[in-house]
Design a protein around this nucleic acid. Sequence first.
DNA 1: GCCGTTTTCGGCCCGACTGTTTTCAGTCG
Length: 577
Amino acid sequence: MADVTRESLVHTLEEIALLLELKGENPFKTRAYRNGAEVVQNFEGDIVGRAAADELKGIKGIGNALQQKLYELASTGKLEYFEDLRAEFPPTLFELFELQGLGPKKIKALYDKLGISSVNELKKACQGSEIANLSGFGAKTVEKILGAIETRAKFADRFRLGEVTPLAETLLERLREHPKVNRSAIAGSYRRAKETLHDLDFLVATKEPAELTKFFTDFPEVQEVIAQGDTKASVRLDNGLQCDLRAVSNDHFPFALQYFTGSKEHNVALRSLALKKGLSLNEYDFTGEGDIPKVEEEVDIYRALKLDWIAPELRENRGEIEAACAADLPDLVKLTQLRGTFHNHTIASDGKNTLEEMATAAQEHGLQYLGIADHSKSSFQANGLNETRLVQQIEEIKIINAHFEDFALLSGSEVDILKDGSLDFHNDLLAELDYCVASIHNVFNLPEKEMTNRLIRAMENEHVTMLGHVTGRLLLKRDPYAVNMEKIIDCAAETKTVIELNCNPWRLDMDWRWWHRARDKNVLTSINPDAHSIEQLQFLAYGARLARKGWLRRKDVLNCHSLSEIQAWLRLPKSKR
DNA sequence: GCCGTTTTCGGCCCGACTGTTTTCAGTCG
C-alpha cells in the first residue's frame, strides 16, 4: 500500500477537481473538492490519522461524500472513484493545464475534437490549421498557445520570495515616483509573504489609469505584454516573472488593496461575512441597502465588518477572521524586535567572511549578539571544523569579545546529525559551547519513521539548543525530507528544543504552516539567517515575515531577547528553560 | 458536493480582458 500523507490526500482531491472540470461537471461540485483539498492542507492536527480512523465528522468543508472518500484513501491507500475518473483521460492531458490561457473547456475541446492529449501533440497541431478552425478558437489563440508552450519550456512558473524582493521594490518605487500616482502598493502573495510567488500584483491610485498602464508596460524589464487595458495590464519580465498592474481611483484603492492582497480563500470568507451584514464587497466598494460605511484606508473595511485589521501575512483563511472577530489576533513579531541571531558561518567552514567582519556587520544591523555556528567535521564538503579547530574558534571568540561592550559573539556549532541520530561531536565538547544547532546534511532519503527518530534522538541531547532547517527543503528544487512534523513539534515541546526558522530564501524552513501549532505548545523559534556572508544577514527580514505568517509573537521568538537575557537563558539546563 | 438564525432546497464572489463572436464564453485572479 502506498504511503498516505497529507500531501497525497490534498493532491488526490485537487486532481479529482480537475477531472470533474474536464468532464464539465457542476462547477460547485468541483469547488467542493478544491475547497476540501484546502481544508485538508490547512488542518491543524493529524488529518491522515483521523481519516484512516473514519473520524472526520464535524470538519467544515468536509461533508459526507468527502469523509467517505478520505476514509477509503487513508485506510486502503486507494480510491475507486478516483481510479475510475482518471481512467477516462490520458495522464499526459494534465500538462495542458500548465499552459497560460488554456482552461478546462478549451482543453476538453482539443481532446474531444482533435484527440490532443499532450503538449507535444498540441504543438504539432498548432503547425496545421485544424485548431484555428475549431469553434471558439482562432488564429490568435493558436499564436497564444505557441507562446505559452515556449514560456512553459523556458521558465518554471514560480519564484522564491527572496529572489524577487529587490526587483519588486525597485519597480514599486518607480511607480510611486510617477507624478500621477497618489498611492501605490504591491498586493497579492508578495504582500502576504508567501514563500514562493507566481506573480507580482502592483496597485496604484491615480486619476489617469490608462497613462499608468502604458507607463507600466513600457518598463525596460518588460519582455512581453500579455494584456493591456485602461485599468489593468499584465506583463512578463525578462526574468520570466509575470507582473500585473491595476490602476484605480483613490477612493477605490483601499478596496482594491484588500481584494488583490487575497488570499482568495480569505476574501471569499470576508465577502460571506459582509453579505451576512447586508453588505456586498468587491474590489471597488461596499454596496448594500442600508448605511454604507465610509472607507479611506484598508483598515476601515475590516472595521466596517466588526473585525480588527488583519495583517496581510495572516490572510490565508486559517482562523484569522475568527480571531479578528474575537479581538484575539496575535501581536505579531517585528523585524526590529530581533536582538541577535544564532546560525551563521565564517571562513572557518564555508562562509565568506571572518569572525570580525561578521561581528561588525551584525552590529550595523543593530544586533546585540551573533551566534557563530560553523559546520562540523562530517560536513567535509563545507570544510567542517574538527574538534581541534572548534576549540581554537572558541578561544578566538573569547579574545574578540574582549573588545566589545554591548555586543558579543556566541560560540556555537552547526553540528551534523548523523544517520542514526547521534551527533558529530561528543557531549564533552558540546558542553564547552554557548549553544548548538543540530542539522541534517546527508542521507536525506530515509523513510519517514527513521528520519523522525533521527531528529528526535538529536533533540533528546541536552546540549542541542535548536534544530536547524528541519526538513532540508530547497524551495522549487528539493522536496522536504520525510518527517512527521507533529511528532517533531511534540518532541521539541517536551525536550525544550528550539526549532529554527531558517531565513535563507531557498529554505524558509520550518514551513510557516506549522508555527501556529508549535507556538501553542510553547515551542520557541529562533529566526536565523544561516548567513554565509555579511550580506546574508539581510535574510533576517524574510524570516521575520515568515514568522509573522506563522502567527508568531515576540515572546515566541528566542532571539527577541536581549544579550543579558540570552546569556542567562543559555546557562539554564535545557529542562529548566 | 457543501451548507443552514433565510436550514433539507437552492444557492454557492465577481469583475476585467481577450478572442471570437454579432452578444458572449473562457480564462484569470
